[in-house]
Amino acid sequence: MFKPTQSSNRRKLLIGAASSLALMGLAGPGLAQTAGGYDDARLYKDQNGQLYRKRAGQYVPYGGPVVNGRPVEDPSAALDADEYARRRAERYGEPPPQGAPAVEARPAPKQAGYPVPERPVDNGPVDYARAYGPVEGEPFTVPPIPYKKFNQTFLRAEVDYRTNEAPGTIVVDPRAHFLYLVLPNGRARRYGVGVGKQGFSWSGAATVNSKQAWPDWYPPKEMIERRPDLKSQVSKLQSGVGVPGGSGNPLGARAMYLWQNNKDTLFRIHGTTEPQSIGKSVSSGCIRMINQDAIDLFSRVEVGAKVVVL
């Protein structure tokens, strides 16, 4: 839904620590990492005030405690290698590839402040009546989907899928309008998606940098100018002019934010208020899903997961 050319203007990544975010006692050159696997003990923040820490040369959102402008080394703020391996083995039935980075134990701070409802992952056969029924326990209404009227090809399914990508990777095939979550043993969880229309499509590899439930949406200035109807929907929010999270928000119930080379691509995998657009090329570049599918994928994908758009 956004143009990648705006990334450099929207987020000058990490303008460095503010004066109040001073270094805490750093180890000498021979001890490169601090607790939690971070490269140093410095906090960084971007122009919107989002805090980050640096791990393996990459900036990751930091939502841990801060005292006197310094990060508190909280063991729960990040997963160590053993815990990462244990969780991956539990989820996918196999250990992570050698050298796989640790992932965040907690999601990035939420834009709208809505908690992520705890939802168990259901790996059984897909019961469409249940899968696309109303979703309970959400801060906003998620209405049922009349799935019998949909092209059944684009409903959620587990399928055979041969790929060299590791389990846990997301692969998007825009031409076929499918998103695959790679599973072990040549299998994948497949979802129908809506993708970018001509002139707004993109391809390449990215990373799920953060995940948000009922996120705010900040359309670029160019989009607002291109679509005057948006002017009546946007208002001043904590990170700029946008649409607050809710049942009428174009990002839907969940969003996964895609970054490349430590920069926000401004592309998202997200829910939608227009489920009839699934299986079509109609968006401004983002990958949209039925809200129920976005919630299901959200519960299975780790922050740090690789995303490949063919």
Score class of each variant (00 low, 15 high):
Q260A: 13
P29E: 11
G137S: 08
P184I: 05
D173I: 04
Y180I: 03
D127R: 11
I290F: 12
D82F: 04
P117T: 07
T34L: 08
G93D: 13
T265N: 06
E83D: 09
P101Y: 09
D40L: 03
T207F: 05
V208S: 06
S8V: 12
N151G: 02
V307T: 05
L14Q: 14
R88M: 05
G113T: 06
L266Y: 13
K280Y: 12
W214L: 07
A100C: 04
W202M: 10
Y84F: 08
V116L: 07
Q238S: 15
G196S: 07
E222L: 11
G69A: 10
G28Y: 06
R189T: 01
Q238P: 03
A32V: 04
Y128T: 06
E90D: 15
Y257P: 00
S277F: 00
T207M: 10
G49C: 06
E158K: 12
G49T: 12
N151M: 05
E83L: 13
S8Y: 12
V303H: 08
D46Y: 09
H270K: 04
P215S: 10
P228I: 00
G196E: 10
L79T: 02
T5L: 07
E94S: 11
L31F: 11
P107I: 00
G168V: 03
A305L: 00
V72I: 13
S277C: 03
V66S: 10
G186I: 05
V308I: 02
R86Q: 14
G36W: 06
A32S: 14
A176Y: 01
L14G: 15
T207W: 05
P117I: 07
T34D: 14
L21C: 11
G69S: 11
L179D: 01
D82C: 03
P71Q: 12
A129V: 01
G28R: 11
A108I: 04
R268P: 01
V60M: 14
L266P: 02
Q98N: 04
A188D: 00
Y38H: 13
A77H: 12
A157F: 02
R156M: 07
Q111S: 14
K306L: 13
T273I: 15
K236E: 14
Q152N: 07
A131D: 01
R42T: 00
A85K: 00
W214P: 04
A78Q: 15
P95V: 08
Q152V: 01
Y161F: 15
L258N: 02
E90T: 14
N249Q: 04
Q111E: 09
E104Y: 02
Q98H: 05
I278W: 00
K110A: 14
A77W: 03
R162N: 07
G248C: 03
Y218I: 03
D74N: 15
T265A: 02
K280L: 12
Y52W: 15
F150Q: 11
Q152E: 09
E94C: 12
R190M: 07
T34A: 12
S284Q: 11
G246L: 02
E302D: 13
P96H: 05
P107W: 10
T163Y: 05
A105H: 09
A18Q: 14
D264A: 09
I290H: 03
R190F: 04
V72C: 10
T5E: 13
